[in-house]
């Protein structure tokens, strides 16, 4: 009996957490997405009305059909997914060698390098993005170096371009890929590699036949940890991007603040969550596998 209680005590907190911080907000947003915009406080119509002992429920599906009627939203989702995918690949190409390198280091060098990766996140994210604005601007560090070396007469426009958005995203999110990948690679049993070498495999061959397949779960978990939040990213495209960078986060901001249309903004958010559901489920699957391996 006491054992049963204990089990429930242990299981309960995560479920309460999930209920409070996922299910309840989700239902609130879902509710708003079924209402209509109005000049009022809050700026949308009520879903339930109780007058003269009659309960009337108003469900407005117009916001959902609205999203399908205008190609803007589809294009914004696609463009966000594209930017997230390209950023994830860049993070992976850059992050894998770093994670691998760190996992092969000796104890003290390893902790130092891990520290160097985590340390920047101790300062505010916003300040780091502003720092990039300083680096990328026309009279910033990069352009000053280029001009003083005589490589160009005019400053090259870096800030307010899609290129700057990629730099900002890769810079910000790469620790989320390196850390899980490192945790995976550090478990790699060196004896596999020794055995491969004994049997005549070169370092490249043993990397592709042993290291990479064994780190598959780490690669997928890390990539999704980058991909999922980047899809909804708002701050980086807003500060580093130009007007042509179309992302769903910016569209959502426009609906919420520009149009004061909270119902459509909520609908955009719900659809985004549905789109992200597949990668989120994948992430949990691979994270679960990763835990089992341990």
């Amino acid at each position: 009996m006491s054992r049963f209680n204990l089990k429930w005590l242990l299981i309960l907190p995560p479920y309460i957490w999930l209920l409070l911080f996922f299910a309840v907000p989700f239902l609130i947003i879902f509710k708003i997405s079924l209402s209509e915009a109005a000049i009022a406080q809050p700026p949308y119509t009520a879903l339930f009305e109780y007058v003269n002992e009659q309960l009337t429920i108003h469900l407005n599906l117009g916001n959902y059909t609205w999203l399908f009627g205008d190609p803007l939203y589809f294009n914004a989702y696609m463009s966000s997914l594209k930017i997230a995918a390209i950023s994830t690949v860049c993070c992976l190409l850059l992050g894998y060698p770093i994670a691998y390198g760190i996992s092969r280091m000796s104890g003290s060098a390893q902790s130092l390098c891990l520290m160097l990766i985590i340390l920047p996140s101790w300062t505010s994210f916003l300040i780091r993005v502003y720092a990039w604005m300083g680096i990328l601007r026309n009279n910033g560090i990069i352009n000053n170096i280029i001009m003083s070396l005589g490589l160009a007469d005019e400053p090259i426009r870096l800030l307010n371009t899609e290129f700057a958005v990629y730099i900002g995203i890769v810079y910000t999110y790469i620790p989320f890929l390196i850390l899980p990948l490192f945790a995976n690679l550090v478990k790699l049993d060196n004896r596999y590699l020794e055995a491969a070498a004994d049997l005549g495999a070169g370092p490249i061959k043993s990397f592709f036949t042993i290291t990479l397949p064994l780190s598959k779960n780490g690669v997928i978990a890390g990539s999704l940890l980058v991909f999922i939040p980047v899809v909804g990213e708002f701050v980086i495209p807003e500060l580093l991007g130009g007007s042509e960078t179309l992302m769903i986060g910016k569209v959502l901001w426009g609906e919420f603040f520009g149009n004061r249309d909270w119902p459509v903004a909520s609908t955009v958010a719900i659809i985004m969550l549905l789109i992200l559901l597949v990668p989120i489920l994948l992430f949990h699957r691979f994270q679960f596998k990763e835990m089992e391996d341990r």
């Binding site: 205008d70 190609p71 803007l72 914004a76 007007s243 042509e244 960078t245 179309l246 426009g254």
Partner: peptide
């Protein structure tokens, strides 16, 4: 206005 504005800003 806001829809046209998005179109102007992003070309969408």
């Amino acid at each position: 206005i806001n829809r046209a504005w998005t179109e102007i800003k992003t070309g969408q």
